[in-house]
Design a protein around this nucleic acid. Structure first.
Lengths: 341, 341
DNA sequence: ATGAAAGCGCTAACAG
DNA sequence: CTGTTAGCGCTTTCAT
């Protein structure tokens, strides 16, 4: 923090008035005469006065800052969320402190400490893949700092939440594959300690059962990134597991699967259809383009921030928690549409 | 900011000692007896005391926060940069306030004001595509807040900088195309008010000239996104401009070009080779995979932050400015390698 | 070894 | 209409 910055006192001294008068003049307080108001504002502009937000925070016990804990910025979905958060916060005059957990529990815990120490007015969290213990969130609550979970929530933790209807989206995605003629669909699943991992799997299972199709435990493989998808596909091909569709828990995984299939000469979608989840920047540009579920990251960011700000600004914060479910639409592209043969 | 948070006073009251003693005990000051130290630390832990970083900032005139101005988070390159910034800042105990300019000059100006108001200890900036006027940066300097520019710098503004050798990278990329047999290469250029736009163009031109190839003004088109690339390609095809290579200022543009070419039945790379710049997540997954320049976003973030922290922590900040040039390596993939015919 | 007091920049209740 | 004062949470001289 530079020492060069002008304070209200500097203006007061120069104008031979008291700091409080300057303060009031600056906020256009009715008590102050036009004359002094003009003098003060003029000098303030001339000296390029910037009110010290830190002092304000301390005084008002309100930092006008919200904290964000995000698993990994370098994902189209998450960076879209941040973008949404940023835009809404910015319009409301709030700053955003970003903390990456890098999908690590330990780091997530430190992140919450940092944000509390910085007296953020509220926190937006999507939990890491590793997180299985939630004391740190209870600590936030004890400190009466509002939290909104987005996308990856803590099961059973009462709080505002913004999620996508993962269950339904996975169900519809799988049904789409079935309607397209798939009968033996495997699922590349996410970590089952994350609710979204469970829900996407359940949606997949529901669609299969509803259609009277076979479900098998071996058809559910934990694979949630490019490399794991590659290995899983190699395994499938080597073991000659007979399948005609892959529903992946996210796009990177789906793309990893598609690549490996194609490298091995398997035709997508005709031999094996592939569907992803998240609809990142990637989905449009593969060949064939990837069918995926649009998760509306930007919207999730805006909605979560609106909910958080509402609670921050509320007189009485004890109104019931809200769970907002965004609907995720299936974007059908080439990777799932088998050609008529 | 919640009122529930424990302060040093609460501890003092409970222990019937003075706040100053608590403060000292907490920082393990030699004057304090072991006894009280233990008592204080125990109670602090028990009450889950978190030092108020805001009060500290005010007192120490140092916020332990750095500000980041970034054009758009939703780009692989920029989000990688943030990731690098985050990691280094985090290790040094600094927070990161992110501001998106969304490529708008006005917003960038507001961003600088916000960061100054929040008394960040330093600022990392990559200027927006729109920015042509630089008063706001001079204002930062007047306030003696250190700035480091990364990737998109202000020409002529004396400051620490971290850049990629855009000129050389563009030169090498173009030469690679020439060596692969291209003779008529067009350039899809970025905004020429950005130094990187100019440098990439100049590198391209140098390679052509050096090889004794023709250069034409019509071969340089301003196209720096998917859509503009699409239109530019359509124009080329409709006008039957005879070319055999496209060097694009970034990957999105290159991919837009490739797609449109392929849709019109043009073979990439055999009829027209395509090379991008930035090496995002996208480049590996197109078909053919895109040859591109790896810009090392994460490294740029870490290096820029290290340089900034060094200056922030320096006793005397008046040592010469540093310009760090990261070398960008060309990643050769299928889109530029013509098959032997 | 501990406490009292001042001050970081700002606001607001209270007093004229 | 303006000034005085106290205080937000913390550190740091200066006393004791």
């Amino acid at each position: 923090m530079s020492s060069g910055l002008i304070t209200i006192k500097d203006i007061a001294r120069e104008l031979r008035i008291s700091p409080s008068t300057v303060s009031r003049a600056l906020k256009n307080h009715p008590d102050i005469s036009e004359e002094t108001k003009i003098a003060v504002n003029e000098l303030a502009r001339k000296l390029n006065y910037q009110p010290n937000a830190v002092a304000l925070s301390l005084k008002q016990r309100r930092s006008n800052t919200i904290g964000v804990i995000i698993p990994e910025i370098v994902h189209y979905f998450f960076s879209s969320v941040i973008s949404g958060i940023e835009d809404v916060a910015y319009d409301a005059g709030f700053n955003v402190i970003i903390c990456q957990s890098n999908e690590k529990y330990d780091r997530e815990v430190v992140n919450t400490r940092t944000l509390l120490a910085n007296r953020v007015d509220g926190i937006l969290v999507s939990i890491s893949k590793e997180t299985q213990q939630f004391d740190h969130f209870y600590k936030i609550r004890e400190n009466e700092v509002p939290v909104v979970f987005y996308d990856r929530v803590v099961p059973g933790f009462e709080a505002d939440q913004v999620i996508v209807d993962d269950f339904d989206a996975a169900y519809r995605a799988t049904r789409h594959m079935i309607e397209g003629g798939c009968k033996k669909i495997v699922h590349f699943a996410g970590p089952q300690n994350l609710l979204i991992g469970q829900l996407r799997k359940e949606g997949y299972l529901k669609a299969l059962r509803e259609a009277g199709l076979e479900t098998r435990n071996e058809w559910i493989m934990e694979a949630d990134n490019f490399e794991k998808a590659r290995l899983a596909v190699l395994n499938i091909l080597d073991e000659k597991v007979n399948i005609d569709g892959i529903f992946a828990v996210n796009d990177t995984t789906a793309i990893g699967a598609m690549h490996t299939l194609q490298k091995r000469g398997v035709k997508v979608p005709n031999q094996i259809a592939v569907v992803g989840f998240s609809d990142g920047r990637l989905s449009g540009i593969t060949d064939p383009a990837l069918t995926s579920v649009d998760q509306h990251g930007y919207e999730m960011g805006t909605v979560a921030t609106e909910i958080l700000l509402k609670r921050i600004l509320a007189e009485n914060k004890n109104y019931p928690f809200e769970t907002r479910v965004l609907n995720a639409n299936l974007v059908i592209r080439g990777s799932s549409v088998k050609e008529i043969s």
